[in-house]
Design a protein around this nucleic acid. Structure first.
Lengths: 339, 339
DNA sequence: TTGTAGGCGTTATCAC
DNA sequence: GTGATAACGCCTACAA
């Protein structure tokens, strides 16, 4: 009377439950005639295999536990969509957990949830977590399933997926230099690993070119438009004559544009502005914003592919773990940096 | 050697597995001493109950299947975060499915996935699906778990969660009228139910006030900035003298602002502009955008609460199903509509 | 190629 | 207050 199970199908198709299982999984041959009978029975009975029971016997659920930062940011949403897309393609489902507040996030609650659900693997996509020591991994012993980290500092023993931060920032700064800019400020983002790397590379590229890059050309910010405005004002205070600014993201760059417009500074003629992320709004900014386009969705897809591979190889030690992923970035040149 | 189960805990605490189960669920009394022994054993063994096995015996998984539209829109992301927040609070996990392309979405694949995972309930948050007939619900018989729809036309037998579209639009149009506006155009969104309702209400409120509201004051659009620009140009073509425009969302309103600025029309003095959604960018638009603030996150939370109640009452017919939710909206007045 | 039986980890029912 | 036992639905040896 209630929902059909594999025995009902077997009875209806006049075979044994084991044969139905084999017909569905294809792990053992089944004659064409029985196969067809089983398929028919499944259709008429409206049978849906119980993944809970499957997971119970297999020891894992074909579910990925995904923990993502809050979805207010364009990039985060795009990564999640990439994860979803590839997960479906690879035959996995997604158990989602959103971190609403980085400061108060409860690692153990999330990991416990994932372990209890016997997830096949975990994708950790919270860039704000850049220090593994914040999690006491030891307490979970060998119970933690294979895990891939998105935008995490490459670390021995951890499987990570990144875009090429170094290349992107170097390209960006070199572009500004090639445009004749000499006083290139940087609005730095919050204290994540990739944020730090961008600052390091900004400084290194300028230093190599013999251009100024001391702290007076550097302003701390967060990811918001307002913070970008504030940082821009600070920088102009220190250096009224600066001729370019590299912002930590497009929001900050848009804030900078606003301040410059308010002060009647011509962009790009007097000051060039360059952002990060290539959010949709960057194309509609006035003037249209040059930016470093980050492969968010592909980051998510790559994470799923790498995790799938990691799960495959986790079983037998003969196969090597999949290599870390490093995705290329693109420099998108629009009006705000081209003279 | 592998991951501990309830029997291991029982053995370690020198009780029976059933007692451990009772100690954890609290469904039957356990003496304080045994309780403590069990807790200690769980800690030392690092026991994590297997939700798959629990779900198998209970018949459902304490997981909500959530299907959401792609996360490019601010509102969609906010709804999802609201769902996540309340689901955690109610002790449910989220199995996520993202609709990347409304046109090619595969209903049966999603529903089949949810059924196979024995989800306790489904939250359907794809406003673009506004016609239930698109899904052949009959084929699933009574196998579909309790379902709550977000932003769906109230329909007998369906549990829905909405914001008060009528009230919001009426307030908005009346505000414009009260500001002395007489030729109030409308940029209408894609063919969703709430979009249609807004247009209906726009027309009714104007008609009641004896103001023009024929189709020449109406432009079709989608949710993008570009579409808003195009629609605005069309409207100005028909009525160069229009003095207000109600856009279907803030993106469209921002597009309209851009066109008006390009044509040197003063906002709000010559033309008032009003949006929907209250996205972050609306506060930074020039001039700052008046808008109808929609309770996205609360929509998600309400959906979870309603679904939880629906699950409770689904079992026994004595309890009535929870009532539909209708959330209030706020009119946020900024520069773009205030003279 | 197909059938049978045991077990995955948990909870509910029945005893004591 | 606690213990034994039988399910829940499926998979996988092992047998035939």
């Amino acid at each position: 009377m209630s929902i059909a199970n594999i025995k009902d199908v077997a009875r209806h198709a006049k075979v044994s439950p084991g044969t139905v299982s084999n017909a569905l999984s294809g792990k053992r041959p089944v004659s064409a005639k029985t196969q067809q009978r089983i398929i028919d029975s499944i259709a008429t009975l409206g049978y849906h295999p119980d993944t809970l029971a499957q997971g119970l016997v297999n020891g894992h659920s074909r579910i990925f536990g995904v923990v993502t930062n809050h979805l207010d940011d364009y990039g985060t949403s795009q990564v999640l969509m990439g994860i979803d897309e590839q997960a479906v393609a690879n035959g996995y489902s997604i158990l989602l957990t959103v971190v609403h507040n980085t400061a108060s996030m409860n690692y153990s609650q999330m990991l416990t949830q994932f372990i209890s659900h016997r997830v096949s693997g975990i994708i950790w996509a919270v860039p704000e977590l850049w220090n593994v020591d914040q999690v006491n991994l030891a307490q979970y012993g060998n119970r933690l399933p294979p895990t891939v980290f998105v935008l995490m500092q490459p670390t021995s023993g951890l499987s990570v997926v990144n875009y090429n931060i170094m290349d992107g920032t170097a390209k960006a700064v070199q572009h500004l230099i090639s445009q004749g800019r000499k006083r290139i400020a940087h609005i730095a983002g919050p204290n994540t690993w990739d944020s730090q790397q961008r600052t390091v590379l900004w400084r290194k590229t300028l230093s190599d070119a013999g251009l100024p890059c001391d702290d007076s050309y550097l302003a701390q910010s967060d990811w918001s438009v307002q913070a970008g405005e504030k940082a821009m004002r600070t920088l102009l205070n220190h250096h009224p004559d600066l001729d370019a600014v590299l912002a930590c993201n497009d929001n900050n760059a848009i804030g900078a544009l606003k301040v410059l417009r308010g002060m009647n500074r011509q962009v790009p003629h007097e000051v060039a502005v360059l952002g990060y992320d290539n959010i949709p709004a960057s194309a509609y900014a006035v003037p249209a914003l040059s930016t470093i386009s980050l492969p968010f969705a592909e980051l998510g897809r790559a994470a799923v592919r790498q995790l799938s591979a990691l799960i495959e190889t986790a079983g037998d030690a003969s196969k090597p773990a999949p290599a870390d992923t490093l995705l290329p970035v693109d420099l998108v040149l629009r009006e705000s940096s081209l003279t």
